[in-house]
Computed example of a mutant assay.
Amino acid sequence: MIVVAGEALIDLVPERMSSVAAGGQLPALRPARGGGPYNTALALGRLGSPTAFCSRVSTDGFGEALLEGLRKDGVDTALVQRGEEPTTLAVASIGADGSAGYGFYVQGTADRLFTLPPSLPEGVSALSLGTCSLVLEPGASAYEELLRREAGRGVFTTLDPNIRTGLIPDAGAYRARFHGWLPHIGLLKLSIEDARWLADSEDAGDVERAVGAWLAAGPAAVVLTHGGEGLSVRRQDGSVISVPGERVDIVDTIGAGDTVNAALLHRLAGHQALSAPALAKLDEAAWRDVLGFAARAAAITCSRAGAEPPYASELA
């Protein structure tokens, strides 16, 4: 079983035809289930991987809808904590190219009060974390403790920082904390934009050196997403393998990176590579298969509104 830990929230997404206010009219907003870890768990469930979600979710109507969405696609919710505090809201803005930006309403919300669970189920093969859950205290410290505990007992861990700069009051402190996570991470996945932010540089050479330093600190591999240009992986030996993106008419990019997370885990499981030693031994052909699968899955998500990752049948 793969456990995905982190926030579940509601995205308020502009309707496609009114994503930009005109004539002083406010855009219509459509509520949609979201949150990076939530989307990753949902995508894994749809792909057919045994998956559990570990979080703290409100008992309000939005919280009930979030859990129902997971259960509908076969995700185990037994590790979900509940609270009466409201659900976090993320107001999305959609650019002309389909890219998404977010404003967050997080004060006093349920997911921030996540506490360390006593144990994860026997047979957990991987733990995936990232996004807001590793930023917003006091829950962030509990998720970090979960990461360290499970890595310490040999669980394969993956991290997608999925940087939301509006939620990070001290960039230097966050970057230092990120470096502290790396010795406990088996696979690091992030966008090229996030890599530039974490490297604190737009210079390609600086980013390349930063990725090399991150690899030296712990992960067996670093996967970078390059938007429509595709994906690449850099391995411990310094080699880089890249695949092109899948061409598709983009509606929006909400949930694309989360779909990549899920597709990587799902396909790596198929290659029996959910461990750092196995990942280090994965050959080029296998990596091309894994990255290509992730690119196809993300393209389908981008072809429809909101975070609606594909089912296994759509990728057959």
Rank of each mutant, 00 (worst) to 15 (best):
3 V>P: 12
4 V>T: 13
5 A>Q: 04
6 G>A: 09
12 L>K: 09
14 P>R: 01
18 S>G: 15
21 A>V: 14
25 Q>I: 13
26 L>N: 14
30 R>K: 13
31 P>C: 12
31 P>Y: 05
32 A>H: 10
34 G>A: 08
37 P>N: 05
37 P>R: 04
41 A>I: 03
46 R>S: 02
49 S>A: 13
52 A>L: 04
56 R>K: 13
57 V>A: 09
58 S>A: 13
62 F>V: 05
62 F>I: 07
69 G>F: 07
69 G>C: 03
71 R>W: 03
76 D>M: 02
79 L>C: 11
84 E>L: 05
84 E>C: 01
85 E>C: 06
86 P>N: 03
86 P>E: 07
86 P>M: 08
87 T>F: 07
87 T>I: 06
88 T>W: 00
92 A>T: 00
92 A>V: 10
100 A>G: 00
101 G>I: 00
103 G>K: 00
104 F>M: 05
105 Y>S: 07
114 F>D: 00
116 L>P: 00
117 P>K: 01
118 P>I: 00
118 P>L: 00
127 L>M: 02
129 L>T: 01
130 G>H: 06
130 G>M: 01
131 T>G: 05
132 C>R: 01
133 S>C: 14
137 E>F: 05
142 A>K: 03
142 A>M: 07
151 A>N: 08
151 A>E: 03
152 G>W: 03
153 R>Y: 07
154 G>M: 09
155 V>I: 11
161 P>G: 05
165 T>K: 11
166 G>D: 09
168 I>R: 10
170 D>Q: 06
172 G>D: 15
176 A>R: 15
177 R>C: 10
180 G>L: 05
183 P>Q: 03
192 I>P: 00
194 D>R: 08
194 D>C: 07
198 L>H: 08
198 L>Y: 03
209 R>C: 01
210 A>F: 13
215 L>H: 06
221 A>D: 11
221 A>L: 13
222 V>W: 08
231 L>T: 15
231 L>R: 09
237 D>G: 10
239 S>W: 11
240 V>L: 12
242 S>K: 03
243 V>A: 04
246 E>F: 12
247 R>K: 15
248 V>N: 03
250 I>P: 04
252 D>I: 04
253 T>K: 07
253 T>S: 15
256 A>W: 11
256 A>G: 09
256 A>I: 11
257 G>C: 08
258 D>R: 06
260 V>C: 04
262 A>S: 12
263 A>P: 09
267 R>D: 14
280 A>N: 11
285 A>W: 03
285 A>C: 09
286 A>F: 01
287 W>M: 08
292 G>V: 08
296 R>A: 13
297 A>R: 02
305 A>G: 11
305 A>W: 12
306 G>L: 09
307 A>M: 08
310 P>Q: 07
312 A>R: 15
